[in-house]
């Protein structure tokens, strides 16, 4: 059920995104930072599933809240002539790597434990 919903959402988003009218270049930097923020939340969500601490409310609020906050900060940075979006990218991408590391460790451990169990059985 969940997988079907995810795949359906992805396909619909891709089709609509390809056919949507092009946004003005001025706003594309905001969209980029929002996409990065949302991606960060997705990886964070997967990592929390792995850690068994997943909470849908936190996930949703993080998804939209982070994206909006990132856009607002980018706007503020533009007004102040400081490239705040750089800091946002560093934080988001850094967190993405941390979360990816957690996910990777979890699956590697799972696999190795599986293999060792098999070996014990064959012995």
């Amino acid at each position: 059920m969940i997988f079907i919903a995810i795949i359906l959402g992805c396909i619909l988003g891709a089709i609509l995104g390809i056919n949507a009218p092009m946004i003005s270049y001025t706003y594309s930097s905001y969209l980029a930072i929002a996409v990065v923020a949302a991606l960060d939340t997705v990886f964070g969500g997967i990592a929390s599933v792995v850690n068994k601490k997943f909470d849908i409310k936190i996930f949703i609020s993080g998804f939209f809240g982070n994206a909006i906050l990132a856009i607002l900060l980018t706007m503020l940075g533009e007004k102040l002539n400081v490239d705040i979006y750089l800091a946002a990218i560093v934080v988001f991408v850094g967190r993405m790597f941390v979360n990816l590391g957690i996910i990777r460790r979890y699956y590697v451990e799972k696999w190795t434990s599986k293999f060792s169990k098999k070996k014990e059985k064959s012995k």
């Binding site: 988003g13 609509l16 995104g17 390809i18 949703i60």
Partner: peptide, 11 residues
């Protein structure tokens, strides 16, 4: 959420 994300990426 997936819809929003992929929509944004493709746009």
């Amino acid at each position: 959420m997936c819809f929003v994300l992929t929509y944004g990426i493709f746009l």
